[in-house]
Nucleic acid binder design. Sequence first.
RNA 1: GCCCAGAUGGUGGAAUUGGUAGACACGAGGGACUUAAAAUCCCUUGACCAUAGCGGUCGUACGGGUUCGAGUCCCGUUCCGGGCACCA
Length: 961
Amino acid sequence: MAKEYNFREIEKKWHRLWTERQTYKVIEDENRKKFYVLNMFPYPSGAGLHVGHPLGYIASDIYARYKRLQGFNVLNPMGYDAYGLPAEQYAIKTGQHPEKTTFANIDRYREQLDKIGFSFDWDREVRTCTPDYYHWTQWAFQKMFNSYFDEELQKAQPIEKLIEKFKAEGTWPSDEKAQSDLLMQYRLAFLGETMVNWCPQLGTVLANDEVVNGVSERGGYPVEQKKMRQWCLRVSAYSQRLLDGLDTIDWSESIKETQRNWIGRSEGAEIEIPYILPSSLGEGAGEGASFTIFTTRADTMFGVTFFVLAPESELVDKVTTPEQRTAVDEYIKYVKSRTERERMIDHTVTGVFSGAYGINPITGDKCPIYIAEYVLAGYGTGAIMAVPAHDSRDYAFAKHFNLPIIPLVEGADISTESYDAKEGIVMNSPISEDKSVKYDGESLCLNGLTIKEAIAETKRFVKAHNLGRVKVNYRLRDAIFSRQRYWGEPFPVYYKNGIPTMIPEECLPLKLPQVDKFLPTETGEPPLGNAQIWAWDEKTNSVVDCSAIDNKTVFPIELYTMPGFAGSSAYYLRYMDPHNDRALVSDKAASYWQNVDLYVGGSEHATGHLIYSRFWNKFLFDLGVSKKDEPFQKLINQGMIQGWSSFVYRLRNTNKFVSFDLLEEQYDDAKKKNFYYYQGTEADPVYADISMVSGNVLNVEKIREWTAEFRDAEFILNANGQYIVNQAIEKMSKSKYNVVNPDDICENYGADTLRLYEMFLGPIEQSKPWDVAGIDGCFRFLKKFWSLFWDKDGNLTADDSEATADNMKSLHKLIKKVSSDIEEFSYNTSISAFMVAVSELASQKCCSRQVLAQLPVLIAPFAPHIAEELWEALGNKGSVCDAQWPQYEEKYLVETSVKLGVQFNGKVRFAMDFPANATPDQMVQMATSAPEAQKHLEGMQIVKTIAIPGRIVNIVVKPQA
RNA sequence: GCCCAGAUGGUGGAAUUGGUAGACACGAGGGACUUAAAAUCCCUUGACCAUAGCGGUCGUACGGGUUCGAGUCCCGUUCCGGGCACCA
């Protein structure tokens, strides 16, 4: 009997042995080079692990195992991003403590992960929601609170240095409240009164990256703008460093570009605009007052015909004249009534004249100041100069309000639209000599210059005559760092007479208190307002009952909690030294592991986690805690594995479901969506769990049992008596009922097949729908691989016979291909190479130990279980993980002859063998004298020959004259 | 609107970076073994023409170009995906 590939037994055995032998335990070892591989840790959702999760884990596990075989000391940890909204919402619904459900989910994740055979060192597991972990999240927050960003040094400094500076300048106030307020403007973690994205349904604020198209990323609820006092992180201070750092790291160009867009650096100028309020106070009133505008097109100063302020700008009140007051107030009211979403979609021109005029310092012209929502308060200075000829928004505004338009670029046609391009020759700047104001005897003239030259010249002029300054603006906003939720890190802050005060560092962690309700309080306080024991006693340095608050030594503790990205921003540092209770990470561990060499995760975190993490790390680098300015040296973005969602269609206001093929389709232009009708009634899609569907046919009996919704429903079937569902490829998610978990595959094919198949599916970076159709191919391959080692009686085939040249060639070709493929993360092609090599060796009937002994090592990164089993069967001790990755030798790959295509006029006509060392002349000689060549040469004369040894022979011919 | 990435058989995807397009796998068709099924093995499989056999033409979204030679480089067009978006 041939020996069967019993994957169930093999995998069970090795899971046991790996645990017993602590095969994957990693310790710092100064004698070995380190390599740090990291996956974005998962949020343990109630749906469990689905087939998309392991994609990145397998990819990085392969790399980690490969690096280990190459002799590196590899850190490959795993943990859980355990704070989050779903657990809290589940808690609100069921009353179960989020910790309980989170830990239960973690156990399930762990069980599923263990089945797949990862080389994680589980002794280093972290969970962001445990006090020993969030201790250091709170600690970092306190450090940020006690730091400011020194613009000159471009790094964080202790706040004490700033206090010293103020004292030296004599600007340090004596009042404690004033001191606090002053420092708040500098601290890297600060309380700010800012416009926030408020989501009423979720009852919390959201960060910019958590809002997509004006609705919340989670749940899709409307988001409105609201002014609130919030904790913020001064991420914007690091804008330039975050931008510069991108050039030093090995990330995909598209994700770097996304971050560059998000940071949004633009170079321009700030220019002071004096203004007057003539109508109410007489000509010349308000003399001396001015506001500042920001522009990247300083060259267009001569084309300014009006100014615009953002409706939220503090200047609005100052420039509004009594005559215009009613109109302005009405306009502001209108703007406030519009949601963020409406403003984003609807770009109708709106605005109102303020009554005031701004003086263009270059031309001396008096231009009206408008208030309009197309100018954003949050960017630049919230005020702009409008140049309708060369800005499409200003153009639309000018046309609407009938304002003059002055063209400034030669040949630009501005009769129907503005000319926004930064190319061309400047004219009308100035229109006539008296239209350019003289400063110290100098007046600006840009006529004849290119736009780029004109920008530079204007900047110089403005700077030289103190009309403004050159300024770089960033779109990157400070991150709002507080959430009105329960299930997050509590802030280690209490309010001493209204002044935020840090709990002493040695008292950390400040543990999340128990509450009996996870909802906001009746008075609208965040959920932590429900906590009874949530006051800080300065005398005992401990948390005490709220009733003890006396505002002398006992004070209220902050009720906000930190957002999801707090715990995920520095977790890679914690893995280096996860059990340290005196520091986030010891200097020794940080110095050894440095930063992450390979980071694997989804590109959807480009403007969230991957920015926050870089910011957080740069801050810790300034502190000397992190040893590298950038946390993640190389980044691979694994694609999403999508699921096939199935929809059934319910006729509106009925309990009837209609087979999809009976529906009529219509396109709704207004909603940009397809709608379906059945006999005039609109049908609404409802998700059906994919387990109820085979192919595109619904199992009606099964769905009746699924939920009450379907139990008594009527199903209208098609002519074949079937109910057809509509299918769509979507992100795998519990709420879409399209989740496929890896457990069944492990059960039916084994983890090695799953690992191989997920990699064989295509390039890692590509998103693709999950489809099990091809899995048999990988399973067959493993069986063939296995049977290479066993004869029909179940004995090892490996013997001491010498390997043939063919054997060695097959082997070394494989080593070469697999080594380079792993380096390039091209795992699908290396699996193909394995398939080829195995069928070659099988047909060669190779049984040389010399060759066979290498194969388990080569396959170990991909299929570790089968590799271990064969490695052991071949008589080796220990684990294949400690073997050495084989080196290929060119001498086995050298070809004595090479088969090449022979081309005539660039078209391949036949193939023939050439000696590998043939010279070009010899190759041409051989090709032209070959019998197959004769018919192509007949009646032809050779014009030219091209031969490249090892590559190609091309003979250019033309008919004989 | 701006920026980035892409388009290759029925399907997933290869192609030494300018040198025999379609590796490998799935699916499909045919065959062997078997009472049968499963498993396994062998053959065919881009399209069209030809076919006893040899062979030929076209073909990498579309239209041009550079080159002895283009899936690969350049210009233009279309389509799909991603990011930013009233950012001055």
